[in-house]
Design a protein around this nucleic acid. Structure first.
Lengths: 142, 142
DNA sequence: CTCTTTTCTTGAACGAGTCAAGAAAAGGCT
DNA sequence: AGCCTTTTCTTGACTCGTTCAAGAAAAGAG
């Protein structure tokens, strides 16, 4: 587990004020990859019982904008966050339970990015979501 | 524009009851690719002024399940629908205004479907969303 | 330590979507 | 055609994730 001083440093290097809620949110996202906002609020309150949900929402937004964490929103799920950033990894989402796992892209380069400039759009990111069934749900139904 | 009898036939061949709302919803999705539910409700009411929003929601759900239309939900947008189905095309979404356009995948085969470490997930679909800026928004900010 | 700015608390509000009960209409059957 | 069963639609309330807004608290510069 990354320590609190490291999170402080991370915030400072992004020119963000260092606050208890932000440190706790960073730690929570770090410790619970792909967790929902709700789950993160719970996790944060284990460290700071009195934080408001709004503080967590604000922190998540600020940290996402600063690119210290990343927000993902697969269809049908509420917002989820992860601290693994900067690499071009993607996600598998279970149709049954909504579980999310990381996937390194099988092709070495960003997939299909050569599709750029279609319809005059300037493309800056290709997001890939794999849909399927997780081991637990597979076992249950088959 | 595809005609009403054709939509009826489409419904019948999926063993769905043929109702006015369903025909109107099929027509609306056909005529307004990537439209939001709200926009579709408006479009449907041009043909059937009295339909309830619930009937449209129900129809969209039924038609999606029957795979006569497809639902897409880019992060930050409400649900959108399209009638182009069965081919493996993807979407570009404008970060500015949320506009959506179709993109044929640049690589010939389903991208990255040979995803390496899939954590035991059984993958059945790879969804790709390209993020960028549409021509209108590019012009506005540049 | 003071002051300014940002962030947090509190609590209300919003909006897409869902739920539930009864009314209407599809379509099979006679 | 007319009847009957099942599905679908209308109506209206409601949920839940998220956002808004006003004032209180805390960061950090000087």
């Amino acid at each position: 587990m990354t320590s609190s001083p490291e999170f402080s440093e991370l915030l400072r290097s992004s020119e963000l004020r260092v606050t208890q809620p932000r440190i706790a949110v960073l730690a929570a996202v770090h410790d619970h990859p792909h967790a929902s906002t709700d789950a993160l609020i719970d996790a944060v309150r284990r460290a700071l019982p009195e934080v408001s949900h709004q503080a967590v929402y604000d922190s998540l937004h600020t940290l996402t904008t600063a690119r210290l964490i990343r927000k993902i929103q697969p269809a049908g799920s509420t917002a989820r966050y992860e601290s693994r950033i900067g690499d071009n990894h993607h996600h598998v989402v279970c149709r049954g339970c909504g579980a999310v796992a990381d996937v390194d892209c099988a092709v070495g380069h960003a997939p299909c990015l050569s599709a750029s400039n279609s319809h005059g759009f300037t493309i800056d990111e290709a997001e890939v979501i794999y849909w399927g069934t997780c081991p637990a749900c597979s076992a249950q139904s088959g």
